[in-house]
Simulated assay, not measured.
Amino acid sequence: MEGINSTFLLYAVLAILAVMIVVSIIKKAFKLVAFLVAILVAVSAYNIFVKGVSPQEELTSYSIDVKYGENIKDYSIKIKASVDNLTQAIKEINTDTLNTIKRENKLLHKYEKEVQALKHSEKLNLFHDKYCDYLKGVVSSSDTAIEVANISENKNVKVLADTVKKINSTFSELTKISLEEIKK
Rank of each mutant, 00 (worst) to 15 (best):
K73P: 00
I64F: 06
I77Q: 11
K78E: 10
V83F: 10
V23D: 08
A45N: 12
V83G: 01
I77N: 05
I64G: 09
A81G: 11
A81Q: 06
I16D: 12
T100Q: 09
N156T: 06
Y131T: 03
I93N: 02
A45S: 14
A45M: 08
K28M: 13
T144D: 13
L108F: 01
V164T: 10
C132T: 13
L14H: 07
K102M: 05
N125I: 03
N156D: 14
D96H: 10
K78V: 01
Q56W: 14
N5I: 04
L86E: 12
V33P: 02
T100C: 01
I93Y: 09
A12K: 08
D129G: 04
S169L: 12
M20Y: 09
Y134Q: 09
K136P: 15
A18L: 08
K136Q: 09
T170A: 08
K91R: 09
Y62T: 12
Y68S: 15
A45F: 01
V33I: 15
A42M: 07
V43D: 05
Q56K: 13
I182A: 05
A34I: 11
Q116N: 12
V164H: 14
L179H: 06
K113C: 03
N154L: 03
A117C: 06
I151K: 13
T175E: 13
E70M: 09
Y75E: 13
S61L: 00
N47H: 14
I101H: 12
F35C: 02
I182H: 13
S24F: 06
V139T: 14
E104Q: 14
N154A: 08
K166S: 10
K123A: 15
A117T: 02
E70Y: 12
D84E: 07
A34Y: 04
V33D: 06
K73D: 12
S140G: 04
N47Q: 15
F30I: 06
T7Q: 01
A15P: 08
L9K: 09
V50C: 13
K91A: 14
Q88K: 15
V115E: 04
D74E: 11
I177G: 04
Y134D: 06
I4K: 13
I21K: 13
V41A: 01
T60A: 15
D84P: 04
S121C: 00
S24W: 02
L179C: 10
I90E: 00
V23R: 00
I16A: 11
K184E: 03
V148A: 03
S178N: 08
A161D: 01
L32K: 11
S142V: 04
T100S: 04
I93E: 01
A45H: 04
E153V: 02
F8D: 12
K155S: 14
S141C: 07
L40M: 02
K136V: 07
V83R: 07
Y68T: 15
Q88F: 05
L135M: 05
Q116A: 02
I151R: 12
D65N: 15
L40E: 02
A161I: 13
A15L: 15
L108A: 05
V157P: 00
V66E: 00
I72M: 12
E122H: 07
K51Y: 08
I151T: 10
S6L: 04
